[in-house]
Amino acid sequence: MSTNKVIDARGSFCPGPLMELITYMKQASVGDTLELLSTDEGSAADVPEWVAKVGHEMLGSENVDGVWHLKIRKAK
């Protein structure tokens, strides 16, 4: 059964949102959806870049009141 997990990386300068995503991606199963919350402007670009390079699936990204909500499905 696939699950949804929210990763709250708001205010994280180190390890930072992308490192947090990589951590939880390793724990997730194929088909799971991860929603990364980030206040780092860079996440809007660097998260999709990594997701594309590794071959997961970007489901959406939107900024709500200064917080990026990036949704990713683990594809492999």
Partner: peptide
């Protein structure tokens, strides 16, 4: 390094 720059702290 795992992410797109050489350290996570910009």
């Amino acid at each position: 390094y795992p992410i797109g720059r050489m350290h996570t702290i910009a």
